[in-house]
């Protein structure tokens, strides 16, 4: 099956995921079109991280199906490299490689994993570091950067692989309030450039501003979803209303 841009770039159908006997995802379905930005919100422990980790096969699933550009993620014969070239991921705790400089962090994977030419990768890496507004920090080690700066390096590192989809798992949750903005700006730039983004976030103002669609999860199911305007101002389900009342 070949994928065409008219079809969802990421598609989840009735996904079930358990850790041991605990079912964490209980039938999740959602479609994301190319260039769309979706935000997943919901209480802690509702399975948001698990959901997006399943999309790039960091977690396996027990039932249902996930496809990325037509690639069946749950196929035991899946070429994980092929999947992970398409999907970039940014984590809450940045997870940079602490023994490499910012520039090296960005350059490593394209050279090592994709076997690309070093000089060409370096040019691209420097451009990406400029794009996340970190000029001058190329030779700094992660331990010498603030949380917000590290997170932007992590975004650049992911972008260096030229992914088609970016996953963001609460990427501002560990940051100081003043550095949250710089990271959100970076993501906004990306979304404006047409990158397909799937974000888990607690930044409701931000979600409202950039998302094409909001999904609210609770205890492993999607309770409600819709475009931000309808979702925030006109939530139907009492669980959504209660969550929004607490957080807004």
């Amino acid at each position: 099956m070949t994928w065409t841009p008219q079809q969802p770039i990421v598609s989840l159908k009735d996904v079930h995921k358990s850790f041991g006997s605990v079912e964490v995802l209980r039938g999740i379905s959602l479609d994301v079109m190319k260039g769309e930005v979706i935000c997943i919100i919901g209480p802690s422990g509702s399975g948001k991280s698990t959901l997006i980790r399943c999309i790039n096969a960091l977690n396996d699933i027990q039932a249902g199906s996930i496809t990325v550009e037509g690639l069946e993620v749950n196929d035991p014969k899946l070429d994980k490299l092929a999947l992970r070239r398409k999907v970039g991921m940014v984590f809450q705790q940045y997870n940079l490689f602490p023994h490499k400089t910012a520039l090296q962090n960005v350059m490593m994977a394209p050279i090592k994993v994709l076997g690309q030419d070093r000089a060409e990768v370096e040019n691209r890496a420097r451009a990406l570091i400029a794009k996340v507004r970190l000029n001058g920090k190329e030779d700094a080690y992660p331990g010498e950067l603030s949380g917000g700066q590290q997170q932007r390096v992590a975004i650049a590192r992911s972008l260096a692989m030229n992914p088609d989809v970016m996953l963001f798992d609460e990427v501002t949750a560990a940051l100081d309030p003043e550095t949250v903005k710089e990271v959100l700006m970076t993501i906004k730039d990306l979304a404006a450039d047409g990158m397909t983004c799937i974000l888990v976030t607690h930044e409701m103002g931000f979600a409202r501003e950039i998302a094409d669609c909001i999904y609210f999860t609770d205890r492993g199911v999607i309770v409600e979803s819709g475009p931000p305007a309808t979702f925030f101002d006109n939530a139907q389900d009492p669980r959504t209303q209660q969550f929004l009342a607490q957080i807004l």
């Binding site: 790039n56 960091l58 994980k80 490299l81 992970r84 070239r85 999907v87 970039g88 991921m89 984590f91 705790q93 997870n95 940079l96 490689f97 602490p98 023994h99 490593m108 994977a109 090592k112 994993v113 994709l114 992590a154 590192r157 992911s158 692989m161």
Partner: peptide, 29 residues
């Protein structure tokens, strides 16, 4: 940390590449 290894996995590193490029250099220290 497991999370550092996962970051490498998400970038498409193989198990062996993760060991030689990330785990071992950090472990040696």
């Amino acid at each position: 940390p497991r999370s550092t290894v996962e970051a490498a996995e998400a970038l498409g590193y193989t198990r062996l590449q993760i060991y030689t490029d990330i785990v071992l250099p950090l472990a040696v220290r």
